[in-house]
């Protein structure tokens, strides 16, 4: 037989237990938020730092996303910039070529509707919103090939919007890139 304490006392016990749990919940939540901040301070993946806009309808006329400027470019400091377009219903270039062990910046945008930029098997993932430039930094440690589907519904041909990313050894990439302005898997 359970001893039932008087109502007042029971209410106090209930309140005490409850307060303890509430405190614990708050601690859990604070822990989560702090973890996000700390990981951020450790230079882990962070959302892109600046909002950049661009004239979506005139990408092909001027600016960094003109045809001749798409693909992989080696920067003076040895890092690599990859520029790409996602459009109904393909990526250009449709196979991105990148080296291992090199800081890489992907810069991409859309001339028409919202698309997604996802490199399968990595945490490289961003939205391509027309009118805005998406920019993410990455680094590949292993050579290999990744699928790169559009991950946002972009119209009736969405299911056909798949590209690839080819990661090659840094030395081979350096050899291939000699004398080339922009590269893709076709080079």
């Amino acid at each position: 037989m359970t001893v039932v304490p008087p109502a007042d006392e029971s209410a106090q016990v209930a309140a005490r237990v409850e307060r303890r749990w509430a405190t614990m919940s708050i601690v859990i939540v604070l822990l989560l938020a702090t973890a996000a901040a700390l990981i951020g301070l450790q230079h882990a993946t962070m959302p892109q730092g600046r909002v950049e806009t661009i004239d979506a309808a005139r990408l092909h006329l001027s600016g960094e996303f003109v045809e001749s400027n798409l693909g992989t470019a080696v920067e003076p400091d040895g890092s690599v910039t990859v520029r790409a377009i996602g459009q109904q219903y393909s990526f250009v270039p449709d196979c991105l070529l990148v080296p291992t062990d090199t800081p890489i910046t992907f810069r991409a945008t859309s001339p028409d509707v919202v698309h997604g930029f996802l490199i399968v098997g990595t945490n490289i993932n961003t939205m391509l919103v027309p009118g805005y430039v998406a920019s993410i930094r990455a680094r590949f440690s292993n050579p290999g090939e990744h699928l790169m589907p559009c991950q946002e519904f972009c119209g009736v041909g969405h299911e056909g919007m798949w590209a690839r990313v080819k990661v090659i050894d840094k030395a081979e990439f350096t050899r291939l890139s000699a004398g080339k302005r922009r590269m893709s898997c076709a080079d």
């Binding site: 989560l32 973890a35 996000a36 990981i39 951020g40 993946t45 996802l118 945490n123 993932n125 939205m127």
Partner: peptide
């Protein structure tokens, strides 16, 4: 999903 860092692996999958 709510964590910036982990969300990148599964966003829109």
């Amino acid at each position: 999903n709510m964590s910036y860092q982990l969300d990148t692996s599964i966003h829109n999958t």
